[in-house]
Design a binder for these strands. Sequence first.
DNA 1: AATATTTTTTAGACCTCCCTAAAAAATGTA
DNA 2: TACATTTTTTAGGGAGGTCTAAAAAATATT
Lengths: 217, 217
Amino acid sequence: MISLTEENYLKSIYHLSKAGMESVTTNDLAEAMNTKAASVTDMIKKLSIKEFITYEKYYGVNITSKGKGLALSVIRKHRLWETFLVKKLDFTWDEVHEVAEQLEHIQSVRLIEKLDEFLGFPKVDPHGDPIPDSNGKFKVPQQMALGSLKQGSESIIVAVKDSDSQLLKYLDKIGAHPGKKIKVVDREEYDGSMEVSINGQRFFISKEVSENILVTA
Amino acid sequence: MISLTEENYLKSIYHLSKAGMESVTTNDLAEAMNTKAASVTDMIKKLSIKEFITYEKYYGVNITSKGKGLALSVIRKHRLWETFLVKKLDFTWDEVHEVAEQLEHIQSVRLIEKLDEFLGFPKVDPHGDPIPDSNGKFKVPQQMALGSLKQGSESIIVAVKDSDSQLLKYLDKIGAHPGKKIKVVDREEYDGSMEVSINGQRFFISKEVSENILVTA
DNA sequence: AATATTTTTTAGACCTCCCTAAAAAATGTA
DNA sequence: TACATTTTTTAGGGAGGTCTAAAAAATATT
């Protein structure tokens, strides 16, 4: 049996190792989990005994395929629940994260298969992130940060990186949803800010924002 | 903050005090919670400090109105989720209990209000039990055990007492759902068994079963 | 290379919830 | 009423998860 806390650690380890490639450090994990390094050391010992990760003292953590499988099943549940909340219960996309953090830990294979079916087997969640299938497989989306595009280039929004509620509310306001076309009208090299056009309207967005909008060519 | 375990204790205390009227004993609670009397003593101390119950040594436990409110909100969630599982995800009524036991602990007022709306503000769950509103109010159903009816009497099934999966599967098989008419054709005083007719078909049912079928005149 | 700084681990402790064993109170019986 | 039985509580301890403080290892600086 795996505990709720262990699932959350595993999810963080999975996400951190995707991002950084290198093995995950104790400190990174402590920050991600909002806890102290000492607590992390305790937990990673347990997770490595259970063979969800491999762990070498003073070096860091690597996720095993067993661990990856479990992390992906939690991520699958999280994204299906988010989709449910937005599509069926009319939540806005900035409201779903917190609740999905709880729902992702419900243990019932049948429930999640039925939910998937009920939602029409969606491939991405409301933020544009891919939903793994029951085997943990999903298409790696061809995506890059809007902030890395040259002036004049046009692209389609596919996802939003951060799930911060403030950011999502803002993107909602300017109409920057997955699926929408976005054009880089102007780009300021000094501070990385840019002027973009969405739905024929123009907006100035900061570097921070432009790096959180993921687009495809 | 209230823990998952505390919520479960409170729910049990609520149900036991409904059933027995008297104050709830440590042993009853231990049996209901599948734990030991000593553990119960620990927990009821905590719950009484938090003023969800009053507790007198060697006497027993009484639920406070604060405690009742919380128990009812958990019960509301449980029954709404059961309704969701049956109505939207095509679960059968014998499959829902276990999953609803987990879902009932999800903390989000908004979620449960939206879910209620999505389901069309149902008044009873799939087993015929009333769903409390957000203030904990619900109509106390006029109901009695089928087993207490005289030979020849006709009534309508309103609910099923036990949520045991075996029982529910059996009731499913004979078509004994809430809403259905049922007639006591014959009644055997020796062992309390009876012959009943549902949908024009006749079945022999044991005393145990007849006491778990709740009907209204 | 020696020293200073940062990161990580160990040690010891606390809280929650559970347990077993034994003591205390309540209840039943002769 | 005195004794036996049952119920409940206390005492002490264990597993999961957290923390702070201090030690150990790794890394950076001079």
